[in-house]
Amino acid sequence: MKLHYKIQGDNQAILLLHGLFGSLDNLNMLAKDLSINYQTIQIDLRNHGQSPWSNIMNYQAMAEDVAELCHDLQLANIILIGHSMGGKVALQLSQLIPQQIAKICAIDIAPITYSQIANMPVINALTQCINQGLIDKEQIAEVMQQYDLTPAIISFLLKSFKHQRWLFNANVIIQQYDNICDWHPISACDIPTLFIRGGNSNYITDKDYPAIFSQFPNAQIETVAGANHNVHAEKTQEVLHLLHSWLID
Rank of each mutant, 00 (worst) to 15 (best):
G133N: 05
L242G: 03
T40Q: 13
G22S: 05
W166R: 12
H48Q: 03
Y209K: 06
E222D: 06
A63S: 14
A106T: 03
I81Y: 12
H4M: 01
N37T: 13
P151L: 07
L15R: 03
T236V: 14
C181M: 11
N55Y: 05
S35L: 08
D249T: 06
L30I: 09
K159S: 04
D108S: 02
L15W: 04
G198T: 04
L126R: 04
C189R: 00
C129H: 05
H48A: 05
L27I: 02
T150L: 11
K32L: 06
T223P: 00
I248Q: 15
K207S: 14
M57E: 10
K6W: 01
K162W: 01
R197Q: 15
H241W: 00
Y38S: 01
D148I: 10
F156M: 03
Q237L: 12
N11G: 02
A110E: 12
P111E: 12
Q175S: 13
P185R: 11
A90V: 01
K2L: 06
L24M: 13
V89Q: 03
M120A: 03
N26S: 06
Q99E: 14
I186N: 13
Q164F: 13
H244T: 10
I36L: 13
Q95L: 06
E222S: 04
N169D: 11
L3H: 06
N77F: 02
L158K: 07
I123K: 07
I43E: 08
Y114P: 03
H229G: 09
T113G: 03
I135T: 15
L167H: 12
V89P: 07
H83L: 04
M1D: 01
E222W: 00
L30D: 09
K207I: 07
K103H: 13
Q220E: 14
A61K: 15
D148G: 01
Q220T: 05
M144P: 02
C129R: 03
Q146I: 14
H229L: 10
E138Q: 14
I221P: 02
E138S: 14
N55C: 00
Y177D: 05
N131I: 11
S115M: 04
N58V: 14
N169A: 09
I180V: 15
L34T: 09
G133A: 11
L93N: 02
L194K: 06
T223E: 10
L243I: 15
I180G: 00
K159R: 14
P98Y: 10
K32A: 08
D65C: 03
E234T: 02
N26P: 07
K2N: 13
Q92T: 11
P217L: 07
N171S: 14
A13Q: 01
Q92K: 14
I196C: 13
L45S: 10
P151Y: 08
C105K: 00
I109Y: 07
K235H: 14
H229Q: 07
L69R: 12
I107C: 10
E142Q: 08
Q39K: 15
P210A: 07
C105T: 15
K32Q: 12
I79Y: 08
Q215C: 01
L93Y: 00
R197A: 15
M29Q: 09
G133C: 08
C189T: 08
N169F: 07
I41T: 09
A141C: 09
S160F: 01
S115C: 04
Q176F: 08
N124G: 05
D178I: 13
D25Q: 09
A102R: 14
L16D: 09
F195P: 10
D178K: 10
T150H: 05
D148F: 15
R165K: 15
D25W: 02
H83C: 01
S201N: 07
D136C: 10
L34C: 08
H232L: 09
